[in-house]
């Protein structure tokens, strides 16, 4: 097992797709602070009436039907002339941008073995094909962690340059808790994409699925389920989207209630374990080639 992990690490370090993804994330992280600065300046320049209208429009939109990647920036990012690092992290994570990168990275990394068929060189040497899943998921976890560090490191650095001294940390422990939970949710998301890769084994499908799921495509399915639950089963106020991973990513915030954080933790753990477990089953049962 240790040998397989070493081999996966070597592969991750030498795969061009992984390097390119890290470079994109680094560039995005470095530009993020400046983009947020520009966005806050633009919202600052809005008239009071326009700002109120914008806020009203956003408030009226249910979370579960917000599809696509967005960065939730409004004037609240600059409060009392200061910018909280927690709000900054939330602005990047809750919008799903990093989830998009995680989805693509997971698809490229896990599918690589299948798309170039390198796996047939290794598979026969492993007793129990499910064992191929463990090193892959372990190294994927490491890659997502590195991506997180790289993104936030670059993001905080650019924010420090863009916002200067008004950048501060209001609650360090709370921020770490938030980032930790988001890391879990993003890793679980990466595992879901990995499960799709083990199942479908088409890099085109897997990358597309990563992009669409990060964009909240599943929210449409939850909406349909809600409509069915309401009209067929007469459930008063159905909200199946509450179990959605992408919704958890967007709802978990540094200032969120304990119940929201707790739900995020449970959803993250369940998706993490379910995706890993199903990946084992799929690899064990299906032919390698």
């Amino acid at each position: 097992m240790f040998n397989l992990i070493k081999s996966e690490c070597y592969k991750a370090l030498h795969l061009r797709s992984v390097r390119v993804m890290f470079l994109i994330v680094l560039i995005f992280g470095l530009s993020s602070g400046f983009l947020l600065k520009t966005a806050t300046t633009m919202t600052d320049s809005l008239s009071a009436e326009d700002a109120a209208q914008l806020a009203e429009n956003l408030e009226g939109m249910p979370v579960e039907v917000r599809m696509g990647i967005y960065t939730p920036v409004d004037q609240s990012l600059v409060r009392n002339g200061a910018v909280d690092l927690g709000d900054l992290a939330m602005a990047d994570l809750s919008g799903g941008m990093l989830a998009l990168f995680v989805g693509i990275l997971s698809a490229l990394f896990v599918s690589a073995d299948f798309s170039c068929r390198y796996i047939i060189n290794i598979a026969g040497h492993v007793q129990g094909k499910a064992k191929l899943v463990i090193p892959k998921l372990l190294v994927l976890t490491g890659l997502i962690f590195v991506m997180f560090l790289l993104f936030h490191g670059a993001d905080f650095l650019s924010a420090r340059i863009a916002f200067g001294d008004i950048l501060y940390v209001s609650d360090g422990a709370r921020l770490m808790q938030y980032l930790g939970l988001q890391l879990l949710l993003h890793t679980a998301f990466g595992f879901v994409i990995a499960f799709l890769c083990f199942t479908v084994r088409s890099i085109a499908f897997d990358v597309t699925a990563g992009v669409l799921l990060a964009s909240g495509l599943v929210s449409m399915a939850y909406r349909v389920t809600d409509i069915i639950a309401k009209h067929v089963f007469h459930v008063a106020q159905p909200d199946t989207g509450v179990i959605s991973l992408s919704r958890a990513i967007s709802e978990v915030m540094p200032a969120a209630d304990a119940s929201v954080m707790q739900r995020g933790l449970i959803i993250g753990c369940v998706y993490f374990a379910a995706a890993a477990g199903l990946s084992f089953v799929v690899m064990q049962r299906r032919d390698i080639a």
């Binding site: 030498h14 795969l15 170039c116 068929r117 390198y118 796996i119 047939i120 060189n121 026969g124 080639a289």
Partner: peptide
């Protein structure tokens, strides 16, 4: 094994 065509990382 070398089945169908070699499984290689082309980069």
């Amino acid at each position: 094994v070398l089945i169908e065509h070699p499984g290689l990382y082309y980069n």
